[in-house]
Design a binder for these strands. Structure first.
Lengths: 120, 120
DNA sequence: AACGTTGTGCTAGGTTTGCAGTACAAGCCC
DNA sequence: GGGCTTGTACTGCAAACCTAGCACAACGTT
């Protein structure tokens, strides 16, 4: 029980971002309204709106004023290979009893190593 | 450039947690002093101390007052299989131009799916 | 035993972030 | 065209978090 419900704008952003880039939310699919999302997660409208704003800035969603918010057409879903590796990683972690938060920390550490010299 | 320098206690916590669980910081190895860490990352001592406290609560490190802080003996490093899957995931993501933050969001999404029914 | 190192604790202050409630503007839909 | 849906904006307020600086306690080192 590591990922309860999101409480901040960043967490809501991450939630939808993950759903979109993992393909759980397909091209053109509609997201809940800002008000609905706010209600669902028990946060203020402004907080949900902020998350949507951020997603739109990154081109992941398209908002039209009275028509709601939809996943932006095209460049949303990550390549299949990436999804599969993510799934394999998740399964290995869960099988070994490694928490989600720890898995993320491990991913960050591994990422860093491949990108730049170890640590200064 | 997604993982600049940590600015909050949580981020510092995650940084060391990742280093330890990924094996970059081995058993018994010494961490920088609280003051040093604070200086390195440009945060207040209290912030660095808070991160250390959290790591100690989770049994990842052991602090002795004048002897510094060291990685707790034993149960620190995640199983090799987990590390390898993490590395594979990171490589796939970087190769596909998927950012670290997005990769984390994908991992979260995938994790959720395997644990509980899709979405309510 | 004396000194220096190191983790901890505290206070006061500032910044960020979210909440609540309301009002508004845009435009879909009948 | 008219009503209703939906995203946006703004105000005042509160809570959480970090900063800065200092003081202290514990303990290794010489």
């Amino acid at each position: 029980m590591t990922t309860s419900t999101p409480r901040s704008a960043d967490e809501i952003d991450a939630l939808f971002r993950g759903a979109i880039r993992s393909g759980q939310l397909g091209d053109g699919e509609r997201l809940p309204t800002v008000r609905q999302t706010a209600r669902d997660f028990g946060v203020a409208q402004a907080t949900a709106a902020k998350a949507y704003k951020s997603l739109e800035r990154d081109g992941l969603i398209v908002t039209r004023t009275a028509a709601g918010t939809r996943v932006a057409p095209g460049a949303s879903r990550a390549p299949q290979a990436v999804i599969e590796r993510a799934r394999a990683f998740a399964e290995a972690s869960e099988g070994a009893g490694v928490s989600l938060e720890d898995s993320i920390a491990i991913l960050r550490a591994v990422w860093r190593v491949e990108a730049v010299p170890p640590l200064e």
